Simulated scan of single mutants.
Amino acid sequence: MKQQTFSSLQTNWKYRYCHGGTLRKSSKGRRARPLSSKEPIHLVFKVNKTAVRGGLRTPRTFSLINSLLKKYSRKFYVRVEQHSIQNDHIHILLRGGKRSQMQSFFRVLAGQFAQRLTDTFDTKHEGEKIWKHRPFSRVVKGYRPYRIVRDYIQLNEREAQGRPYSKSRLRGLTQEQLTELWS
């Protein structure tokens, strides 16, 4: 009888390993950020398009993001396996050690990028917010989801470099498309 009462509870197992982004607006994303020192983490920073002129692919902004990623991944002992910078968002696949170091990496990377982009080190930024949402993170459990995320980030990078966009791109790629994607 007691076990049956627990089965009627609404749990969000689908979002157990996710945090941030648009989930923050609902009750699903309002708990501690799930982080793992063993599994990779897919991290997405979504930028407000009106706050950043020209997007994130402009040469100055692109090199700024790359240098900040390299600098703070070394400082906080986080290994960035793969990243893709789009016009309005950044995908990062990373692995980290301690939870506190990964949290510091997320916080410092977002803060430093916003400060350097708006040139507001000493004063408060008066314009629109740089980030649209809090960073979305998801712990990637298993090899198959890892491959899917890895291929998705690679596909995003190729599309940012000029590969034609296809609506059916997320339904799965053939083996020939995968070899073309990674070549």
Rank of each mutant, 00 (worst) to 15 (best):
Y77I: 08
R138I: 04
L117N: 12
E39N: 13
E81H: 10
S27C: 07
R116C: 06
F113D: 06
E180T: 08
F76E: 02
F62S: 14
G172K: 00
R95G: 12
P40C: 05
K141P: 01
S168R: 12
C18Y: 10
F121R: 15
L173E: 02
A110I: 05
Q101R: 14
S183K: 15
Y77S: 14
T58I: 03
Y152W: 06
G142L: 00
S67L: 03
R134L: 10
S183Y: 09
R116W: 03
N87L: 04
S63Q: 08
R30D: 10
G54V: 07
S183D: 12
N12Q: 10
F106D: 05
R116A: 05
V149C: 10
R24L: 09
A51W: 02
V140D: 04
I92V: 15
Q3V: 08
Y152S: 07
F6I: 12
S67N: 12
S104E: 15
K132G: 05
S67H: 07
M1Y: 13
G111V: 09
H83T: 05
E157C: 06
P59D: 06
H42L: 04
V139Q: 04
S166N: 09
K25M: 10
N66E: 15
N87M: 06
S67M: 08
R99S: 07
R33G: 04
I130F: 03
S168W: 13
K98M: 09
Q82Y: 03
S100L: 10
Y17R: 10
F76P: 01
L9V: 11
Y146P: 00
R24M: 12
K2S: 08
E180P: 03
F62H: 15
S67T: 11
W182Y: 11
L178M: 09
V44P: 07
L109V: 06
D88S: 13
F45G: 07
F105V: 01
I130A: 03
L9Y: 11
T120S: 11
G162L: 02
T22H: 09
R16S: 12
R147Q: 11
